[in-house]
Design a protein around this nucleic acid. Structure first.
Lengths: 142, 142
DNA sequence: GGTTAATTCACCCTTTCGGGTGAGGGCCAG
DNA sequence: CTGGCCCTCACCCGAAAGGGTGAATTAACC
């Protein structure tokens, strides 16, 4: 941020110097006033456009559209996953810690651990990132 | 698009007219050249900044997620994510532990931890499940 | 030649996870 | 009413992850 501002400041300083130089030449060679002004206008417009683009650049992150999710109930039955487990699975997939999930569901963290242990068994995984992957494949979570 | 260009054209025309007017007053009232040039520079810089921001303001298009994955290189650059970091990110998203990633890339687990710490900063998260979520949204991983 | 960014690694510490075991209460079908 | 499933919770333990700091090496850039 400060670096960017510094760059702008230096550029403006440089341009001001160039301006002075042009002024000097103007007085010497008697260039037309219109030409002189045109150059100044064009240069500063270009600088402005560049600065504007640069300043605004961070806001152009493109996000993928959320696909419409339909839960695969067949897989849920097949794997014997309960409602509560599915609930915990969803919250876990959103990146919550066991403690956070526990607070959201008004139960203890130990309970969440039990649910997740059972889920890991049913999904045949042993890490939550793997569980999330598998659950997405199986259409258990969006 | 054409409307935008038209707006710019009209604005430039207006400013040129204003320029002429100023020039007229300059000749009449003998304002200082520095002041005159300063006004021109400031006005055109402002115009440029405005145009630059407007030109660069992309609408976030809502598109169906493509079946085939294409890395969003724009987001990669925007967030300053390096090749190596992207590599680690991909393996982490596949559910590998730091140790496993380290072995796959022939580096130490400490190195992987460093890469992930930097990634978490850039993705503004603090858990790997959140990182995976965010990375998918941003088109950094399939 | 100095600067910068990227990559690599080490050491510290705390928190979180994963795995195992046990157990109590509710609910429902056989 | 008994066995099975679900939900709940507790305790223990070791492994993994997260956070912070510091530093060496290399390549790229000006």
């Amino acid at each position: 941020m400060w670096k960017t501002i510094l760059i702008y400041a230096l550029l403006l300083a440089g341009l001001t110097a160039a301006l002075k130089f042009l002024e000097y030449k103007y007085l010497l060679r008697d260039l037309s006033l219109e030409f002189y002004l045109g150059v100044v206008a064009v240069v500063f417009t270009a600088l402005g456009v560049w600065a504007g683009i640069r300043l605004n650049r961070k806001k152009t992150l493109v996000v993928n559209a959320p696909a419409t999710f339909v839960l695969n109930e067949n897989n849920v039955r097949q794997l014997g996953i309960s409602k509560r487990e599915l609930e915990v699975l969803g919250l876990m997939a959103q990146g919550h810690s066991n403690q956070e999930i526990a607070e959201k569901l008004f139960v203890s963290a130990n309970t969440i651990k039990t649910h997740l242990s059972n889920l890991f068994l049913k999904l045949e995984v042993n890490k939550r990132t793997q569980a999330v992957q598998r659950a997405k494949e199986l259409g258990l979570i969006p």
